[in-house]
């Protein structure tokens, strides 16, 4: 686990790091960060509680507890990762533990957009390639160099063509993933839209 947390800022194009494999389909955000840790008004201390209940159950054998994974930063997962609750606390906890990118068979929609919004690129690969990486990680340490522009992951034993949504790739490369300022640039258009919407004029009691 990184001792001091520096959130990503600006353009994101390269991620180099050790892989950590987590096997299982439909791993939900309640498992990534159980609800009791949501009783907080900032995200700062979430890193240490990531997968808290799963880790306790496995008594030190969970991938996030293994000594050899302590410096890992690229998470490799299976399908529908991050399903369930919309809690951004889940990717925040992963990021604060040290995760900078995720490669998986597929991701749940809200989890995926939360990852974009906080600067964690999520890539997909076919099931077979994921399993190949996960099997490799069972025995050896795997370092990957990810080039987002080329959507390429390289290591001494493997090369993979990663897939990522075109719009997501553009947003990371331009820094637009941190969306607020880009959205605010269209302030006039937002005002126009507000004035055009039929229901704004319905003049309800509260709105």
């Amino acid at each position: 686990m990184t001792s001091k947390f520096n959130p990503p800022i600006g353009k994101i194009s390269n991620m180099n790091g050790q892989c950590i494999s987590l096997i299982g389909n439909d791993i939900d955000t309640d498992r990534i960060i159980p609800a009791r840790f949501l009783k907080c008004v900032n995200f700062e201390s979430l890193g240490e509680s990531v997968f808290e209940d799963d880790r306790k159950t496995l008594k030190g054998r969970h991938p996030f507890d293994l000594e050899e994974n302590k410096n890992a930063s690229i998470l490799v997962v299976n399908s529908n990762f991050g399903c369930g609750s919309s809690r951004e606390h889940a990717p925040q906890a992963l990021m604060r533990w040290g995760i900078k990118a995720i490669i998986g068979e597929s991701f749940a929609d809200i989890f995926y957009s939360n990852c974009i919004a906080i600067g964690i690129p999520c890539f997909t690969l076919p099931k077979e390639s994921i399993e190949e990486i996960q099997n490799y990680c069972d025995n050896k340490i795997l370092f990957l160099e990810i080039d987002l522009k080329q959507s390429l992951a390289k290591s001494k034993d493997f090369n993979f063509n990663l897939e990522i949504k075109k719009s997501s790739r553009k947003m990371f490369l331009s820094g637009e993933w941190d969306a607020t300022s880009t959205l605010l640039e269209n302030e006039n258009l937002i005002e126009n839209k507000f004035n055009q919407l039929p229901y704004i004029k319905f003049n309800t009691n509260l709105l």
């Binding site: 809690r87 951004e88 809200i110 637009e176 969306a179 959205l183 269209n186 937002i190």
Partner: peptide, 19 residues
């Protein structure tokens, strides 16, 4: 549903970046 960063965006701009 949206995450907290998107809540921030809606508060600040009343809009979201979405596909």
């Amino acid at each position: 549903g949206i995450g907290t960063s998107q809540v921030r965006d809606v508060l600040a701009t009343q809009t979201l970046a979405m596909n």
